[in-house]
Nucleic acid binder design. Sequence first.
DNA 1: GCCGATTTGTCCGTATGTATC
DNA 2: CGATACATACGGACAAATCGG
Lengths: 249, 249
Amino acid sequence: MPKAKYEQLYQILKEKIESGTYPPQEMLPSEHTLIAELGCSRNTLRRAIGELVRAGYVQTMQGKGMRNIFEPSQQTTFTLGTIETFSESAERNQQRGASKVLLFSPVTADWQLAEKTGFAEGTPLYYIQRLHYLNGRPLIFNHSYFRQDVAQGLTREIAEQSIYRYLETELHISIINSKRVVTVEKATQLDLQHLDMGDCNCLAVVSSQTYNSDGVMFEYTQSRHHPNFFRFQDNAVRRSSAYGKPEEK
Amino acid sequence: MPKAKYEQLYQILKEKIESGTYPPQEMLPSEHTLIAELGCSRNTLRRAIGELVRAGYVQTMQGKGMRNIFEPSQQTTFTLGTIETFSESAERNQQRGASKVLLFSPVTADWQLAEKTGFAEGTPLYYIQRLHYLNGRPLIFNHSYFRQDVAQGLTREIAEQSIYRYLETELHISIINSKRVVTVEKATQLDLQHLDMGDCNCLAVVSSQTYNSDGVMFEYTQSRHHPNFFRFQDNAVRRSSAYGKPEEK
DNA sequence: GCCGATTTGTCCGTATGTATC
DNA sequence: CGATACATACGGACAAATCGG
């Protein structure tokens, strides 16, 4: 439940758009009208509108207004810009999620692992392999590395449940941000063994480095996704016509 | 050249971070200090900071301050949240871009094409196949469909140059936003023929629907990327600890 | 083509809340 | 507890784009 007013306004407008209260392809009421309806200041409303634009629900045009461009086919599987755990994502999509821990092992970063993950060589880590199921199918093969000095007391039993819950509620770590890169890689023997991907020999790989409020990267995770069930969504806006104006007057 | 003040502030701070004026992993000056230094209001500064957060340059913590988390390894190939043409992207990455038109053909959307692209069945379209080269290598195989009634007078010659330049400067179309989805697909014969992808049989596919200021989707493009040279970057933030607070006091 | 009304975009100043130290 | 720092919210002012008369 969001407490900030602009988040509430965002939710209200989002639901009105999704439910068809505002007809598709049509203009929404003007800011002036919405302010009167919703009882808020212009800045607060505009902040909510900004989120709607970024999420691809509306487009705004200076001097014209705001148009509903939502299309109900948006069955997003992975969000962008916000950090979600696998179970949170499954719940949002109203799907059955399950996970299995394949490996839990303390390791020390050698130069090769340091190169790949971004941790300093010699850093003590927990290495965890997990397999995530959606609706009974194995879809994501996960390799995670956590700094031992940050994720103190992490065990296989905790990993079976929820690591983030442990970090946030037990260790009081605030997770701030995560840098992610999406690439496509050749499948390894391990991938083929667990993911059952037919005759595809590549998969989608999301590598992420996650930081806490002390600015230390405490987690590196490589998520290897089944190619047929990977879907990453984005809404882009055109900043300023990169080309100069044509002749006028 | 951005004219808005918050964009200028964003550029100034971004360059100070990239150049090392603000040391990595250290706190930046407080908002109060930056306001005095930069000569702006708090709101305007905070808007610039918001962009820096989204771009992964800094992290902010209430009550503590703002930390520089930039790492120079960020060699992003594809942007997120903003619309760029291939040539604009190549220029930004200081690389040699080139394109070749393989096919230019008027078509009418049948039910199959309508299903795939989102255009209504029977819509008259221009179908364009293009191959994009970066530093001499063919990396992206592009299938584009433009509505004939919007992109009036489009020719093969224009497609050889820049379609967006034609749309924006000649036809005065304002391109507003674009919905994109990243997936992984099996390579077709056509892909293998043009992209030279070794023993990989999958590639990264970015499908995009682009809208103008009248709210009509006038372009559908499917970009099929060589798997070894595809790289999509994102910075995510943790909204609110999804778990309730633990015992306190 | 001009002008005025409407609408979104930008910017400022201020007040208050909340988290950290 | 107080000082500091970021987060939220409000109201006002002007600029820029659009549209209709």
